[in-house]
Design a protein around this nucleic acid. Structure first.
Lengths: 210, 210
DNA sequence: TTAGAAAAGGTGCAAGTGCAACTTGTATAT
DNA sequence: ATATACAAGTTGCACTTGCACCTTTTCTAA
């Protein structure tokens, strides 16, 4: 993943920090990250660790909206809708850099070259994010489980050009990503296996029709 | 909608055009926009008119991926997945400004203030886009039609704070947006009416439970 | 090393949905 | 004024899916 600080020297990063009035906060595993940001317009960058943006449903269930790894960018204007029923939870010890959105968008910044490099990096990171969202939408638009699975396979196959897809997460997580019932997904995977469309071994799915 | 040229004078816009080596292309109604861009890395801006990004399914059906109005920004790195089975169709006579992505990301641009203003505008436009995608995903993640409808109502209600939602498109388009079958949607809307959750008059949906 | 938790895998059944095939309503152009 | 096209609205039916509830396997912490 592209770092937002790509192309910047240590000294420039420090200048950037003071220009933007950033703060670094540290959170330990399972702690909620910045419960206060829900009311503020900020951009956060994961400097170290791993966290998840969770949506809290009225019934208490929570859904993973986004995984935040090192160098991930998130914030009220990027990853989050206007709703307030979400939490960001550190899944490991996690360091977060916080930038005030208004300070980021301040026109005076534009005279500093190190800022512009940083800003261009943010732009590229966010573009990747949009692509990922579009992929997910393309899958979720499909009405049937089989079609969703095949669309997912199609996208992953186009990315790697290989007929083997190695799931980067559990089958349970795959069901959540595709927004379908887990056991119904297993049923459909079984059908696809029976019809010789795919083979499954651990976290590897082999496409036999390619 | 925020213009990418917001805060720029005519003379600065002209400088920007030459800096980025832009081209303006004109398309008439129902013409395909830039069939060649599928292989190129570009960013397009709708200067005038109205167009749609369509996904062409293997069965010939096409799905509206995105509506492009005046000032909309689109491009291979923004709105589009890696797949090549899409078309952008002008629904009216439409003028499109095309920027080469590599020229946009060129570090030398950053020394020009007018470029940085333009770039910051792009950043904000794209952030809005992500928010919209997140909203849609939140709806599509719901497993049942009723839940999708209620989530849609919830989001629109939070935006306007009013109990009346005026559909900006037809009910047919709403069904497409929610990725559900149109007649199944009408059936569920009827149930919601019968249970006194909502009232419908023309394109106005009134939320009675708020 | 063992108990407990969580994921993988499976099944029956009721509920929900997509689809086809209508009717009705409403624009738009000739 | 009338034909044409398209959106709105409805219904029956078959198929799909979610859900509850299992068992088995794998992982993890004491």
């Amino acid at each position: 993943m592209l770092s937002p600080f790509n192309g910047l020297k240590k000294s420039q990063i420090n200048k950037l920090y003071s220009l933007l009035g950033t703060h670094i906060y540290k959170f330990h595993k399972n702690q909620e990250i910045l419960p206060t940001i829900k009311n503020k317009n900020i951009i956060g960058i994961i400097l170290e660790g791993y966290a998840q943006i969770l949506n809290i449903e009225y019934n208490g269930n929570d859904i993973v909206i986004e995984n935040l790894y090192k160098n991930s960018v998130f914030g009220s204007n990027i990853s989050l809708t206007n709703s307030e029923n979400y939490q960001i939870i550190a899944k490991e010890n996690t360091d977060v850099l916080v930038i005030d959105y208004d300070k980021l968008i301040n026109p005076n910044n534009l005279t500093h070259n190190y800022f512009n490099i940083f800003f261009r990096n943010l732009f590229e990171i966010i573009n990747v994010k949009i692509k990922e969202k579009n992929e997910r939408i393309k899958i979720l638009e499909k009405k049937q489980i089989r079609e969703k699975l095949l669309e997912y396979f199609e996208i992953e196959h186009k990315k790697s050009r290989f007929n083997n897809i190695y799931l980067p997460f559990s089958f349970k997580d795959l069901a959540d990503y595709l927004a379908i019932n887990r056991s119904a997904m297993f049923r459909e995977l079984k059908h696809l296996k029976e019809e010789q469309f795919i083979e499954i071994k651990d976290n590897r799915i082999t496409l036999l029709y390619k």
